[in-house]
Amino acid sequence: MPTAIIIDDSPIMRAQLRRVLTSAGFTVVAEAGSAETLVALYEQFHPDLVSLDIVMPGRDGSVAAAELLGAHPEACVVMCTSLTSRDRILACQRAGVAYYLLKPFNPEHAAQMFKAAVERPRPGAHASAAVAR
């Protein structure tokens, strides 16, 4: 069963994402209200997917995504945001984020995106697999 981490400062949004991820077959292994501990949580749990908000108190989600993907290019990050700002989305794309979930989202569409995101081959994951062999 795939695993996920949720980073969002809104308790009700975390609750919705937990529900959607669970319905899509994920096990949510950790949640946080800020991105300060993102890399530490990732290294502790090695989740298959990270759902990450952008605008949060403290560290900006796009900065945290760049930091995570710099250290762990195999990470699968879905930005979950109400922002449509081109600058912020471009910043996330430059960091290697390929998936965006715009709030408000349809739970069924979100579940499909989460499943598709973890099924997509990732360069880092291939490299890890090659080393393991």
């Binding site: 605008v55 945001t81 109400s82 922002l83 449509t84 700002s85 081109r86 709030k103 408000p104």
Partner: peptide
């Protein structure tokens, strides 16, 4: 948060860059 994020498109589409708090 959702409504402001959606509606700032009205500013972005006119060339105003917006950072949301």
């Amino acid at each position: 948060n959702i409504l402001t994020g959606c509606a700032t498109e009205a500013l972005e589409s006119r060339g105003f860059r917006c950072a949301l708090g």
